[in-house]
Amino acid sequence: MDNKKAVLVCVTGQHDCDRLIHTGKYIAEKRGVPLQVLSIQSAGLGTRKECEELEYLRQVSKEADAEMTVYFNKEAAYTAAAFARQVGAVHIVTGMAENTSNGFIDVLHSLLPKVPISMVTKDNKIHNICPQNTECAPRMVRA
């Protein structure tokens, strides 16, 4: 059996996903495991801005001592769940949909029901899905 463990952060190509990486780094440090960052794009990178934003997130990942992986696939939740299993995710960090949900978190949770998921809002509030008998996100202390 493989003993890999990691905290997985799922980012889109948006610049402000850096908050997710910072949250994931905090959780990974508290749990004593590495940090992995994953971005799943539904199609090829089209605009220069999209490329620049992903490059920015890659740099933030690097500064957080995390490896960033990018996949191109239209089934984001299934791809994320497979990657989470591959890296031994013990905790997942995502953004939180402001309006209607695209079902990403629901599908991810149904595929990985024992893995805690922390959803970070744009104003850095953290909402957790904590499976029974598992540790959820430690409280972040802001300076």
Rank of each mutant, 00 (worst) to 15 (best):
K30P: 00
K62W: 13
E67S: 05
I27T: 07
T121E: 12
F83Y: 15
V93S: 06
M68G: 00
T69E: 10
A66E: 01
T12C: 00
E135T: 09
L111S: 08
A89N: 06
A43L: 05
N73R: 14
N124Y: 08
Y56F: 15
E75I: 03
V70T: 14
L35N: 02
T100V: 11
G103Q: 12
A82S: 14
R48L: 13
R139H: 07
C136Y: 14
K122E: 15
Q41I: 08
P113S: 13
I21A: 06
K62S: 15
Q41V: 09
T69L: 04
I126N: 05
V93W: 03
R31K: 14
Q41P: 00
T94Y: 04
H91M: 02
V115E: 10
E135V: 05
V7D: 02
K125H: 12
N3V: 06
I27W: 03
L20H: 12
S101N: 07
A64T: 06
E29M: 01
T134C: 06
H109P: 01
Y56D: 02
Y56V: 00
K49T: 12
I117N: 05
G24F: 06
E52A: 11
N128I: 02
T100G: 11
Y56K: 07
Q59I: 07
E29W: 01
K114V: 10
E98K: 13
P34K: 03
G44D: 13
H22R: 15
G44F: 09
S61A: 15
H22D: 11
V33L: 03
L8D: 00
S118V: 11
E75Y: 10
A66C: 05
V60M: 07
E135C: 05
G88E: 02
K49P: 08
G95N: 10
N124P: 04
R139W: 03
N128E: 15
C136W: 11
F83I: 02
M119R: 15
P34M: 03
T23I: 02
Y71N: 05
A6C: 04
L45A: 07
P138R: 10
K5V: 01
L54Y: 09
I40D: 02
I27V: 15
R85N: 13
A137E: 06
C136R: 03
E67C: 01
I126P: 08
V9E: 02
R139S: 10
S118A: 15
A143E: 12
S61K: 04
K74T: 15
Q86C: 04
K62I: 00
G46Y: 06
L20M: 09
K5N: 00
A82Y: 06
V87G: 02
K74N: 11
G24V: 04
S42F: 07
G32Q: 03
Q41Y: 01
I40S: 04
I105H: 02
K74G: 11
A80L: 07
A77P: 11
G46W: 01
A77Y: 12
R19E: 10
A89P: 03
T23R: 14
A43Y: 08
R48C: 04
V33H: 07
E135L: 13
H22E: 14
K125A: 14
E50Q: 15
V141Y: 11
D18Q: 13
K114G: 04
C10G: 05
P34F: 04
I27R: 02
V120Q: 11
P116V: 09
L8S: 01
E55L: 11
H22A: 12
N3Y: 03
P131Q: 13
V7F: 00
S118M: 08
F83S: 00
V7S: 01
T12R: 10
T121L: 13
R139Q: 13
V141I: 14
